[in-house]
Design a protein around this nucleic acid. Structure first.
Lengths: 202, 202
DNA sequence: CCGGTGCATTGACCTATGGTAAGAAGTTCA
DNA sequence: TGAACTTCTTACCATAGGTCAATGCACCGG
């Protein structure tokens, strides 16, 4: 039953979810912990997403598949983050996203029943949940603006600034996929940046 | 006080917001209606967005400005739709979006006070509001996937399929801006599509 | 120690789209 | 009606990024 994973989630709830340790205890039985080995599929596209996965160790990725079968990474979920398809969860529609593990990962499965129970137990939780939603929206808005308005190089620089840790953990081809370019292009972008930084004038 | 605009919004609330006519009456005093002439600025970038604008006549657009000063249209809001910056409203942050009128427009200003009052009066409203949020997320998710995975032509075809009415009302350069391409490129895409449809074999 | 596998890099070449400029067609307004 | 605008289109060239193929490197299991 992986007690440590649940405890970490409890800590997280107390820090950012507005639940006290006692409130958490009351509803902890609604949670399950899971482990995924590197490469394991967490959510199969076409199935309904019934849980948000809160990562306590490791790294998940969320990817959309276009009709040519190419993967486009929508989000990375390292420790402390959630991976899920909110639309699929809310509307109970089959998801068009795939979630899988980039590293060996431990996560907590958070279902609607837990969220409802937590909202009932604590108004603070309800509020932090709404804040989470709005953070998600803000993040997507920024991403859209970036995809519309910035070139590959700028997108990459923003990525590094925003997720410096991920830049080290995630293979470059996946960063490229997140940025909407090919691995080859990312490689060239990196080379150009390195040249400009280390030999400003030749 | 533009009674017709408010009445239209009342209808809208009864159809999709879960409010009865009586419930709406109770809180209607929290609403104000506004009119914008074509080209008028509804929300100035840099200011906090304190209202969602529900359009009853006309057409608003929501645009993001990149650092080169280029506009990228994030959303169109024709009759029955909302224009706003949810992040700015929720976090009370200065908005990086501009909202302005593409046509002469009549709208209802919906503030947080109205939303709170409506939630208090009707649990159905609270739910429909959450659904609206999730619709927004779903829409943004689709948009990101499209920007990452589809070429200009496919994006344009999806746009036509999704907003056939807007295709007629909105100048092409704005559609181009929504799609993330230049007006010239859109013009070429349209020519190529027309050629393929009307003279399949030459 | 070896071959296999996956990833990053590079180079050559190609394509979609951008940039610029000019003209055509339609709109607005005096 | 005609002048000033705006929008759309077309043509020509430039460029970012995609595609393909080859290479090198690290890791892995036998």
């Amino acid at each position: 039953m992986d007690q440590e994973t649940i405890e970490r989630f409890s800590d997280h709830m107390q820090r950012t979810g507005g639940l006290t340790a006692e409130e958490f205890e009351q509803i902890a039985h609604l949670l399950r912990s899971v482990r995924f080995t590197k490469g394991a599929v967490v959510l199969e596209p076409g199935s309904v997403c019934n849980h948000a996965f809160h990562v306590t160790h490791g790294l998940l990725r969320v990817a959309a598949l276009d009709r040519d079968g190419n993967e486009h990474i929508v989000q990375f979920a390292p420790e402390g983050w959630y991976a899920s398809d909110r639309s699929s969860m809310y509307f109970q529609e089959p998801s068009r996203l795939r979630i899988d593990a980039i590293e060996d990962t431990a996560a907590v499965m958070v279902g609607q029943d837990f969220v409802d129970a937590a909202c009932a137990v604590s108004p603070k939780f309800a509020k932090s949940n709404t804040t989470l939603l709005h953070n998600h929206i803000r993040h997507m808005q920024d991403r859209i603006a970036l995809l519309l308005g910035a070139r590959a190089e700028e997108r990459y620089q923003k990525f590094i600034a925003m997720y410096p840790d991920l830049t080290l953990r995630v293979p470059q081809r996946m960063i490229a996929s997140y940025l909407g370019i090919t691995p080859e292009s990312l490689s060239r972008v990196r080379r150009d940046l390195a040249e400009r930084n280390f030999r400003p004038r030749v």
